[in-house]
Design a protein around this nucleic acid. Structure first.
Lengths: 349, 349
DNA sequence: TTGTAAGCGTTATCAA
DNA sequence: TTGATAACGCTTACAA
């Protein structure tokens, strides 16, 4: 910048003014400066700038598993929502670890980002407050962090679990294996709750003896291998079941694989439904029924919430309002993995 | 920091010394400072620090399509390779756009990152030099950028294409549809070259009349939908083929879907092979044969190359050595989508 | 319309 | 062993 100033025969203040387009500057000088900038191929050092402004215009999006296409899909929503305000979002994969590594802590504590979106992570409020400055604008998505004062967006997971399980009951399943997510992760718990609710309320009415058997419930990581190995174990142990509700699509995809290896036909012998509606679900064989999350909207809403917080924390007075909480509705996406017998409810795809 | 200094009754210089653990500082003062830091919940502003050190210890990894699990898998390799040197890597999804958006340009030009890895992107050297400072340490992976002086790692794509196509010929295919990647993307071009080479050399020897027909070659984005729609179009147009070599696994997955909809059996009617070996390949039905890339190694090598550049650009004298170029060998991973008739070559899974 | 100078939160050099 | 103080590259009153 000094070089540019010298080259153009002006002061660095003037250079700053033309770079930012603020303040009065005579057209001829502006030209000279612009020309000098071009010649020297100068570009402003934004980290210095952010030191002055206390703001980098960078945001971090933390996801637990970048290999699960659900999260990248959310990232797009976030990026689009914040782009108009000039924010850049960088993706940080925590690999499901509660530590999130010393590396990403650096980004937060070290002021490299102005705010963060925590997505599908299993942190609790206490841990979180150790990891990041208390005043860092935050939004939590696809996850509830009890005791944390922060905005949040998520889908109604209990409702989703209910819809999925009811659907399986509707197509005639009586013993439904549940491939659950990790214990203590709110999305997994919500989906399980919906599953149990469907079975209990179902047992009462016309449906004959749909069973809620604790042998039918397994918990584990949200990964395809886990779905595969848990289904395989169930099959090998001789457990009988005619439906599977997987707590996410990756688990369901793994289940499909195991069922096939054991010669079980889907949906004839076992109907399978997942959760999320990642693009792979439609590509599976048979195409996978699933509870679709409004992925892109989740992202945009989270992005906008963060923008709102950021605006407010920029204000002199800090009348930080109560944390907002928005809950979106999931929707059934019925495909061939459950297409058999009497189906009622929405048909799509 | 000033507050900490006051609280501990020392100068900010002393605080800095204890924070960084450099320079002599009496044990009692050290304690006092540490205590003050704890009480005030202070954490150093790393952007200020990076202003004086000219280095943020952040790296950017640009990927063209975060929804393709191949790239996230690479990210892990990179992150592991650079973690020991204290670097954090942030993921930037360019969505295949040549522009990479004004947002990521900010990261590079604005000194938010010390270096970058460009992965699978379709930029050329001229464009690149417009987008980033000329002296930014760079490594290019899974892609050749002609005219760019930068280290690079990639797999031998021509060889991979050759292996895939030869394998299809070996299992008896005679008319092989090629679902190619985008025109002008070096990986796509390499794989196509291998395909053509296999067909040409094949025609000469014992194989009867394997045909290299330009109708059998299609090009397009590296996406599942593209594989689906191109295969569907081929099927609808009545084109005859008994094998498909897809330039990546996503394309192959889409192809599988289309084949199934048209009642073509895999591998009996059409054998299918992909490229990359993303984890979804093994989960497909039937499990997808593919040309496996050493994904993790690609990542670690790229990471280490960048570390080496960074070390060197820190040196006073800048005897920047010639760019290194490493080419890894792919390997055939044969699964059921091509399992038929006489197979020769490596069998894995 | 332009320049001077004080700061942004650090580190590093030099004296004390 | 510690404390002033000058950078780092930029913005922004305030003066000129």
């Amino acid at each position: 910048m000094r070089d540019v100033a010298r080259e153009a025969g002006v002061s660095i203040a003037t250079v700053s003014r033309v770079v930012n387009g603020v303040g009065p500057v005579a057209e001829p000088t502006r030209r000279r400066v612009l020309e000098a900038i071009r010649r020297l191929n100068y570009s402003p050092n934004l980290v210095a700038k952010s030191l002055v402004h206390r703001g980098t215009k960078n945001l971090a999006l933390f996801v637990p598993d970048i290999m699960n296409p659900f999260f990248p899909a959310i990232a797009r929503g976030v990026a689009d929502a914040v782009a108009s305000e000039g924010y850049t979002v960088v993706l940080c994969n925590t690999d499901d670890s509660t530590e999130m590594g010393p590396h990403f802590e650096r980004l937060l504590r070290g002021n490299f980002v102005d705010g963060a979106i925590l997505c599908g992570t299993a942190w609790d409020a206490a841990l979180l407050s150790r990891l990041m400055p208390a005043d860092l604008p935050l939004v939590v998505m696809d996850r509830r962090v009890p005791g944390l004062r922060a905005d949040s967006v998520e889908v109604d997971n209990r409702l989703g679990g209910l819809m999925a399980t009811r659907h399986l009951l509707d197509v005639g399943c009586r013993r439904i294996l549940h491939l659950g997510g990790p214990v203590g992760v709110s999305t997994a718990e919500g989906r399980l709750a919906g599953y149990l609710e469907a079975l209990c309320s179902g047992a009462a009415d016309e449906r004959d003896a749909a069973e809620a058997d604790s042998d039918l419930i397994t918990r584990g990581p949200f990964r395809a291998e886990s779905g595969y190995s848990r289904t395989r174990a169930a099959l090998e142990s001789g457990l009988s079941f005619d439906g599977i509700f997987a707590a996410n699509d990756l688990l369901a995809l793994g289940a499909l694989q195991a069922l096939r290896q054991f010669g079980r036909r889907v949906p004839e012998d076992v109907a399978v439904i997942g959760f999320d509606d990642i693009y792979m679900a439609a590509l599976a064989l048979p195409p996978l029924s699933t509870v679709a999350q409004p992925t892109y909207r989740l992202g945009t809403i989270a992005g906008r919430m963060l923008m709102a917080r950021l605006d407010r924390s920029a204000c002199p007075a800090h009348p930080q309002p109560e944390p907002k909480r928005v809950v979106l509705e999931p929707s059934l996406r019925i495909r061939e993995s459950t297409r058999r017998g009497r189906v009622r409810g929405s048909e799509e795809e």
